[in-house]
C-alpha cells in the first residue's frame, strides 16, 4: 500500500505535537524563560525610557520582543533534541524501514513547535498587553507580529533539526542551544541600535541578523507599519527556514543510508 506525502506528513506531524506536549522539558522552558526575561529586563530598564532618543515612553512596549525572540529560540533545543533522541534510540531506523519520505519526516518535526508557538504567542501577548505594551500598528500589527514570530519558530526549529541530524546527539544539541541566547543578547534586543554608544557592539548588533528579526517585530509595536523592517525580518526567517530545510534533507540523506 502506498501512502501519500500529505498523509505521512499528517501522521508524523501528529506525533510531533503529541511528543512536544508530553515532554515537560519542551513546554515549561518555552513558556517560562521568555516571560521571566521579559519581566526582569523590563523592570530593570524602566527608567531607560528617560534616555534621550529612546523610541517609546513605555518600556514594556520596547521589551515585549525579548519574550518573542527568546521564545522562538527555545525551539532550537526542542526540535534538535527530538531528532537526536530518534537517532540515539534507533527510532529513525524504524521510520526508515517504512515507505516514509524523508522530507515528510523533516517538515513534520516543526508541527509540535508550531502549535506550541501559537500558545506561546497568546500568552506573551496577553502578559505584554496587561503589563502596558501597546501596538503602534494596531490589532492587525499584533497579528503580523505573531506571524513573524511563528516564522521565526519555524526557522529556528529547522535549524534545530539540522543540528540534531548533524550531531545525532542530544548532549550536543543542549550545548549548542544556549549559544542562541548569546547571539540574541548580542543583537539590538535590549537596546535600540541607534542608541548603542560602544562602536564594537554597534557593529556586532548590525551584522547580527537577529537584530533584524527583533526590529521587525518591534517596529509594529513602536513605529507602526515599517515595510522595510518587516521585510528584513521575514527575509531572515524565510531564508533560514529554506536553507535549513534543505540542509536537513541533505543531512538526513546521509544518515539514512538505506539502499
Amino acid at each position: 500500500m502506498k501512502t501519500s506525502f500529505w498523509r505521512q506528513l499528517g501522521l508524523l506531524a501528529r506525533r510531533s505535537v503529541v511528543r512536544t506536549f508530553r515532554d515537560p522539558g519542551s513546554v515549561a522552558p518555552a513558556m517560562l524563560v521568555p516571560l521571566i526575561l521579559f519581566v526582569l529586563v523590563s523592570a530593570g530598564l524602566e527608567k531607560a525610557t528617560h534616555v534621550k532618543g529612546f523610541p517609546t515612553d513605555t518600556i514594556w512596549t520596547f521589551t515585549l520582543t525579548i519574550a518573542f525572540a527568546n521564545g522562538a529560540m527555545v525551539t532550537v533545543a526542542n526540535t534538535g533534541q527530538a531528532v537526536a533522541t530518534d537517532i540515539e534510540g534507533g527510532f529513525i531506523n524504524r521510520l526508515a524501514l517504512t515507505p516514509m519520505r524523508s522530507f515528510a519526516l523533516i517538515v513534520s518535526q516543526l508541527a509540535g513547535p508550531l502549535v506550541l508557538g501559537v500558545i506561546q504567542a497568546v500568552v506573551f501577548l496577553g502578559v505584554g498587553l496587561a503589563a502596558g505594551a501597546r501596538f503602534e500598528a494596531g490589532p492587525l500589527g499584533a497579528v503580523v507580529l505573531v506571524l513573524i514570530f511563528l516564522s521565526a519558530v519555524l526557522a529556528f526549529g529547522a535549524f534545530g533539526i539540522f543540528v540534531g541530524l548533524r550531531t545525532g546527539s542530544g548532549q550536543a544539541v543542549q550545548s549548542i542551544a544556549p549559544l542562541m541566547t548569546v547571539f540574541l543578547f548580542l543583537s539590538s534586543v535590549n537596546w535600540p541600535r541607534n542608541l548603542i554608544t560602544a562602536d564594537w557592539f554597534y557593529w556586532v548588533a548590525t551584522i547580527n541578523p537577529l537584530s533584524y528579526l527583533v526590529e521587525a517585530m518591534r517596529s509594529l509595536l513602536i513605529t507602526g507599519w515599517d515595510k522595510e523592517a518587516i521585510g528584513f525580518g521575514l527575509a531572515f526567517t524565510g531564508g533560514v527556514l529554506v536553507i535549513m530545510l534543505f540542509a536537513s534533507a541533505w543531512q538526513l540523506h546521509g544518515r539514512l543510508v538505506r539502499t
Binding site: M1, K2, T3, R7, Q8, L11, L12, R15, V18, R19, R22, D23, T85, D86, G89, G90, F91, I92, N93, R94, L95, L97, T98, P99, M100
Partner: peptide
C-alpha cells in the same frame, strides 16, 4: 519485510497504540 532490530527502537513518549497506528499509517493503511 518486517524488522525488529536489536535495540527495540521505540519512542518513550508515545503509547503502544500510537506506535502501531503510526506504523500502520506510514505503511499505507
Amino acid at each position: 519485510i518486517g524488522v525488529a532490530l536489536q535495540e527495540a527502537a521505540l519512542d518513550p513518549l508515545l503509547t503502544g497504540r500510537e506506535h502501531l497506528y503510526l506504523q500502520a499509517g506510514l505503511n499505507g493503511f
